[in-house]
Design a protein around this nucleic acid. Structure first.
Lengths: 194, 194
DNA sequence: CGTCTATTTGAATGTACTCAAAAGCGGTGG
DNA sequence: CCACCGCTTTTGAGTACATTCAAATAGACG
C-alpha cells in the first residue's frame, strides 16, 4: 500500500481514470508535512495551492476588522482545502490555513491545476464533481444558518461531522457555527440539565 | 438575434465550444415562461431541472419549522438557479423557486444533464467553472455572515448586487441577509440620519 | 508539578427580534 | 381618474437571545 493510494481513490470516486492519467496526475503533486500549529497559508500571501489532506486536521479561518476570528472550514484526511476564491482568482489570500495537529497534504499548484485540465480533460469531471459537492455543502450551511437556532446548528454539526468533533477544540466549533465559545458552553450545559 | 444567443454566450464564456456542441446543447433544453408569483419548484417535489434565467427575476426560499421564510438565492437574467443539492442527489426539493415578475427560463432536465456529460465532455469544463463560481460565492457569503454586522452585510449586498436591489422587495433582501424586515428598515433609517 | 490553553460560570449589556399599529405605495376596477 | 384594497415598509415599545468581560476551574503537555 502506497501513500498515494488514498488520493487516487479520492479522485477515482466519481469517474474511471486510466492508469496513465493517475500517474500523470501524481507527478503534478508535491507532498508536504505540516507541524502542529504550522500555517500553510496566511492572509495576504498569494494562494498557490489546492491541498488534499492525507493525514491530520487543518482549519481555515479569517479575522474581521475587530480582530474576531471566524472558522471557515475544517479538513481531515481525504478532504480538499484551500482559499478557493483566492486560489482561482489569483488574489492575495483572505484566509489562514493551519494544522491543528501534525498533518500531511498533497499540494497541487495553481499552474499545475490549469496544466492538468489542458492536458487531461478527464479531470474536468473530477473537479466538476468536487466543486458541486463543495457548493452544495456551503449552500446547506447558509440555509442552516438562516433557519436553525444555534443549538440546532450545533446538534447538526456533531451529527454530520463527528470526525471534526473528536479533533477540534470547542472554541473553533463555536467560531464555525457563528457563536461565542461561552455561548456554546451554555448550550452544552443546557443539554445536561435535561 | 436569437433568444438562444444569451445562454450560448453564457456557456461559451470560459471555454471554446464547437458549433455542433452548441446546437446539441440547445436541443437538450426546453424553454418555459413563468408568470409573476408562479412557482417552478415546490418543496417536497422532485427537483428535475437546472434553470438558466433568460429574463425576469426568480427567488429560491425555504421555511423553517416555525414557518419563518428564508431566501436562499435570487436569480436575474443570465443566472442559473435550482435546488442544487436535491437536483444532484435526486431528493425531494427543500426549496421553493418562484418568479418575482414575469420571467422565462431554459430548463435542463436531470437526465439531459447526465446525457450532456456522457456525450459531450467539453461541458464538464463549462459546469466545473459554473460550480466553482457558485461555490466561492456561497463561501464568501458564509464568511460575511460570520464576520460582518447586519449593516455591513446590507451595504455589501447593495454594492455587489444592484440588479437585485432594483427588482426585489426589501423583505426578501432582509430574509436573504438573515435579519427581519423591521430591522432592515431600522438600518436604512439609521443611514439617513447620518 | 507548573504553565499554558481551553472550558465553564455568572452578571451586565447589546443587538436583533416580536408584536402591534400606522403610513406608504401600487395596482385595479368602478 | 381616483378611490379603495392589499401588500410592503416604517415606527416604537417591550423582550429574548447571544455577547462581552472577568474570574474560576479544568485539562493537556512538557
Amino acid at each position: 500500500m502506497q501513500v498515494t493510494d488514498q488520493i487516487i481513490r479520492n479522485i477515482s470516486r466519481y469517474t474511471a481514470l486510466e492508469e496513465q492519467e493517475k500517474v500523470d496526475f501524481l507527478s503534478l503533486l508535491s507532498f508536504r508535512e505540516i507541524a502542529k500549529k504550522e500555517a500553510i497559508l496566511k492572509a495576504g500571501q498569494p494562494c498557490q495551492h489546492l491541498n488534499y489532506v492525507h493525514s491530520g486536521t487543518l482549519r481555515a479561518y479569517c479575522f474581521d476588522k475587530e480582530g474576531k476570528e471566524s472558522t471557515v472550514m475544517f479538513a481531515v484526511a481525504d478532504w480538499w482545502i484551500t482559499d478557493m476564491f483566492c486560489f482561482l482568482n489569483q488574489k492575495p489570500a483572505m484566509l489562514y490555513i493551519e494544522a491543528l495537529e501534525g498533518s500531511s497534504v498533497f499540494q497541487l499548484s495553481r499552474a499545475n491545476f490549469e496544466h492538468l485540465f489542458a492536458t487531461q480533460p478527464s479531470f474536468e469531471r473530477v473537479f466538476r464533481i468536487l466543486m458541486q459537492n463543495a457548493y452544495t455543502r456551503e449552500q446547506l450551511r447558509v440555509i442552516e444558518r438562516l433557519s436553525l437556532s444555534a443549538e440546532e446548528r450545533y446538534d447538526n454539526f456533531i451529527a454530520k461531522y463527528p470526525q471534526f468533533v473528536e479533533k477540534v477544540p470547542q472554541k473553533h466549533i463555536a467560531s464555525y457555527l457563528g457563536i461565542t465559545p461561552e455561548f456554546l458552553s451554555a448550550i452544552r450545559r443546557g443539554k445536561l440539565g435535561r
